Simulated assay, not measured.
Amino acid sequence: MKPTLVIMAAGMASRYGSMKQIQQFGPGGETIMDYSIYDAIKAGFGKVVFIIRKDFAEDFKSIFEPKLKGKIETDYVYQEMTAYLDGHTAPAERTKPWGTSHAILCAQGIVNEPFAVINADDFYGRDAFQKAHNFLVNGCDNKTFALVGYELSNTLSENGSVSRGVCEVDDNDNLVQINERLKVYRDNGAIVFEESDGIKHPISDRSKASMNFWCFAPSIFPFLEKEFKAFLDKNISNIKAEFLIPLSASDFVKKEGGVIKVIPTAAKWFGVTYKEDAPVVKENLNQLVTEGVYPQKLW
């Protein structure tokens, strides 16, 4: 059975205002997501599952169904605020979704094979999809998952500091935990992260960053369901609390004795952290087209 690509896109509507306005970056009007799907097809993935908001479903499908028809199987998951609340009631003032781990949990029953999870608006590069596919086919089991780790230097913005999850690994390149660094940037050539008090700490150029490219077996679903119940018991009244993948992954290692391999990639990540990044994304994609990595029009 071919692995599935799961794309978390439930937050896109709030950022872009309407799914009709998904930003086009490629020379043929492609979104960043189009390149991820194209790379996944090339790598051997058999299906793409979009996690979206139900109220934008028709707009979303009208954009992606025509161009993907006959190229890869598609399915849809709706991240609803009420899903898996297990008797809890969300506060009336909460508008923010429950987070990325909850988004994945919503795919339970739809995704029944090894799968990769990515963000909708990040460019990950072909090498990452090839390595993820290889792991999902040959290395993934109920207790062994993976994270594609990017060279930290390949994930920075020229337009300001960024937040990054920096991977702490053991001697076997297995994930120990992800350390969230909220203000990472280059300072006189060196990579540093800055604390709230302004103190700077160096980070090795060789450090691996998580850009939310995960590889899981379906066994992750019952674990997330159990963990989400515990999260709600503790955080139901906190309207800003989020149930996020990095913490769930860390808990999977600590509580379940699981292993999360950190798969290194030299691919260059890029995305739009600042509006000034948009021209850089277009420039990078045009360069890849010029080099023959991608055709002028993907579909």
Rank of each mutant, 00 (worst) to 15 (best):
F243N: 02
P246F: 08
P246H: 06
M211N: 05
A190L: 11
E194M: 03
P279A: 05
F213I: 12
T95L: 09
F56A: 05
P3I: 14
D121H: 04
G44F: 10
Q296K: 10
E158D: 13
K229I: 15
V289C: 01
D251K: 15
P114D: 06
I7C: 00
G46S: 06
S204F: 07
P279C: 03
K54D: 13
A116S: 08
K226R: 14
W98E: 07
N286D: 14
C215T: 15
E73Q: 11
H201K: 08
S163V: 15
E80G: 04
Q130H: 10
R181H: 13
M1Q: 12
F270D: 04
R206G: 11
K261W: 03
N142A: 10
E194Q: 11
L85H: 08
K131C: 02
D59N: 07
D141L: 08
D197A: 00
V137A: 04
K240D: 15
A13L: 13
G11D: 07
F129T: 06
F252E: 02
T155W: 04
D171Q: 11
E227N: 09
Y38L: 03
R15L: 15
T82S: 07
N138H: 10
I118V: 13
E113R: 03
E225S: 06
D34M: 01
N119M: 06
A57D: 13
A209N: 06
P114A: 06
I110E: 02
N174A: 09
R164L: 14
G26M: 01
N134T: 15
A278G: 11
I37N: 02
P202K: 09
I239T: 15
P91G: 08
A230I: 14
A217L: 10
A9S: 07
Y185Q: 08
E58V: 13
N159I: 12
N138C: 10
P246K: 03
V48Y: 02
L105G: 05
K71Q: 14
K47Y: 11
G11Y: 07
Y84C: 04
E65M: 04
E180A: 10
N235S: 12
I52K: 03
G198N: 08
I245Y: 02
D197Y: 01
S36N: 06
E256M: 08
K226Y: 15
S250A: 13
G292Y: 06
N172G: 09
L244C: 10
Y35W: 03
V166E: 05
I63R: 03
L105S: 02
Y185L: 08
Q23I: 15
Q23R: 05
K234W: 11
A241D: 11
Q287A: 10
R181L: 10
I203K: 01
L288F: 09
